[in-house]
Design a protein around this nucleic acid. Structure first.
Lengths: 124, 124
DNA sequence: CTGTATCCGCCCGGATACTG
DNA sequence: CAGTATCCGGGCGGATACAG
């Protein structure tokens, strides 16, 4: 039956839901992706990151970096010396997010278009 | 240069970041996707939804449904009669989320595997 | 049944000050 | 510079009661 394409199997859906939950747990939230993007664009020091990401506080940035490190997206590198320098790097694993980022941004743009058109119609 | 594939253009990235923010704003959060999934699996009445989605309160469910309706994912249908029956339906627009849901769940599953393997190594 | 209103505890996160 | 500790206010969301 063709309906299975639309209706889906409930157990499959639940499994996906769990997986989606896992994904959102790891990369959801206000800052995770922004931190990763900031790191990608070449800002690797703590204070540099804080300046690059508007509105983030030291405490929150610290927590985000720890979680990102736990999840394997970021590597913390301490260069001993005088003074001590700490750098953060995105790992190759963070590249696995590429597909998600692409679909999210594609959809986000289309969605905004749709919202703008609705707003236009509301005005008329 | 081949590096552009990895490093990306900063303005493009910012544009994507905004779009990703828009997307997460619309479908991010704890309940949005769960509500949509519950509706898809045939639960259309308010109390039915509340029973189907573990842990959601009436207030939160009410808010989620309003936001989902505003964003065009859900249609609210009032059947006048005695008693009045209210039903919620997913709209065809919610199908546009399919790509996002697929990449999220794919990635979520792979990510969980990776975490489990790490945990296994930690034990050894 | 389908919600809304109110109360309220808790936690997120901002500001600031401080340590190494 | 690289964070941590503390204080604290606002808001999210749960419980309950209530309205249509």
């Amino acid at each position: 039956m063709a309906e299975t394409e639309i209706i889906h199997n409930e157990k499959t859906c639940n499994g996906k839901l769990v997986a989606i939950g896992d994904a959102l747990y790891a990369i959801g939230g206000k800052w995770k992706l922004r931190v990763i993007l900031a790191l990608r664009s070449g800002n690797n020091r703590f204070n540099e990151l804080q300046r690059t990401i508007p509105g983030i506080s030291a405490k929150v940035l610290s927590n985000e970096l720890k979680e990102l490190e736990l999840n394997g997206f970021v590597k913390r590198i301490v260069h001993t010396g005088t003074p001590v320098v700490v750098e953060y790097e995105v790992t190759p694993y963070s590249d696995t997010l590429h597909g998600i980022l692409e679909s999210l941004s594609d959809w986000g743009m289309k969605h905004k278009d749709k919202i703008r058109k609705q707003a236009g119609k509301d005005m008329a």
